[in-house]
Simulated assay, not measured.
Amino acid sequence: MHSLRFIAQTSSNGVLERDFVVGEVTGVLWSPVSGSGHAPLVLMGHGGGLHKKTPGLMARARDAVTRWGFTVVAIDAPGHGDRPRTAEDEQARADLQQALAAGETERFESISVRYSASLAERAVPEWQATLDALQDLPEIGTEAPIGYGGGMSLGTAIGIPLTAVEPRITAAIFGGGFFAHQALIEAARRITVPVQFLLPWDEEYVDRGTVLALFDAFSSKDKTLLANPGTHRRMRWVGVDDEFLVRHLGPAGASAA
């Protein structure tokens, strides 16, 4: 089992940001500069073609730290960010760009489904190994409640199978922008924790009906669907339940009480 090694550290506006590696996985941990130990830990996934420090993800992470006192972690998916790309990664990216440019919808969907499933198969054990390593840190430990803070597209294509097999995750936020293939629907059926699902109503790449079928598949008794007008990359969220994670994980300090 790989241990976690910090490789860089900065702080600003009350947020401590530490880059780390666990084996070959590159990640970043955000936490309060001063705060109680064993605060809730939120896992955040990034979208396809992006990375762990994408501006939108960083903004959400820093907000969770400053507003709720959470600790937040993000890692680069295989072939993303600071991770090297395999031949499969390079070929899939090239094929996706070619299919999209040619307007080959069915081919684009087929490649996307196959590649995202491959990424999830590789990323789920990496997330679990990262969690193991984080729980060895005294400020986190095994007492900290854990939630999945989502991420559209790839962040959810990985987050759903992760949540389906990882009992340490007790609440999750997912979002649309990906193809809901059968394996993903089967994974959703195994999820019983509270779920908040965000759907771009005018998503231009993905059939809305398949995403609604995915939401329907969650076995959670507490699940909420929020749909706003907008496309894959142009979305302004209104009415989001900002207190979803704090309600289910508790505020910082509650787990240590």
Rank of each mutant, 00 (worst) to 15 (best):
R190D: 12
G37F: 04
Q182A: 13
V21C: 10
G14M: 14
G175A: 13
K221V: 10
A92F: 02
V15L: 15
I111E: 04
A164Q: 06
H248P: 06
G37P: 01
G155F: 02
A133C: 08
N13T: 11
A101G: 12
S118D: 09
E17R: 11
H51C: 03
L16M: 13
L119C: 07
R247P: 01
V206K: 01
R93T: 04
A129M: 09
L16I: 06
L119R: 06
Q97R: 14
S11E: 15
G177Y: 05
V165K: 05
V42Y: 03
T170S: 15
G209Q: 11
A102H: 12
A254C: 11
T163A: 06
F6Q: 08
R247S: 13
G69Q: 07
N13F: 12
L199E: 05
R107M: 12
T105V: 15
D82M: 07
T142D: 10
G27S: 10
I158K: 00
A129G: 14
L214E: 02
Q128K: 15
E166F: 08
Q182I: 11
S153H: 04
T10P: 02
E186Y: 08
T130Y: 00
D82W: 03
L131P: 04
R190V: 07
D207S: 09
L198P: 02
W201G: 10
D242A: 07
Q97K: 15
I173Q: 07
A213N: 13
I160N: 02
G47C: 08
M58Y: 04
S31N: 08
E104Q: 08
V28K: 03
S116W: 03
S110G: 12
H38R: 14
D82K: 10
V113D: 00
G35V: 14
H51G: 00
D136L: 15
M235Y: 10
P138V: 09
M58A: 06
T210C: 03
R60M: 11
R247Q: 14
D202G: 05
S11Q: 15
G159T: 13
H80D: 05
A257W: 12
Q98T: 11
V73Y: 01
A172K: 05
D136K: 15
A77I: 01
E24T: 14
T231M: 09
A172G: 07
Q98I: 05
S219C: 12
P125N: 13
S220A: 15
V65F: 13
V21Q: 09
I158V: 14
L245Y: 06
V113E: 09
G159E: 04
Q135W: 14
L249R: 00
D95R: 10
G147E: 03
V42S: 03
A129W: 01
M58P: 00
T71S: 08
R85Y: 01
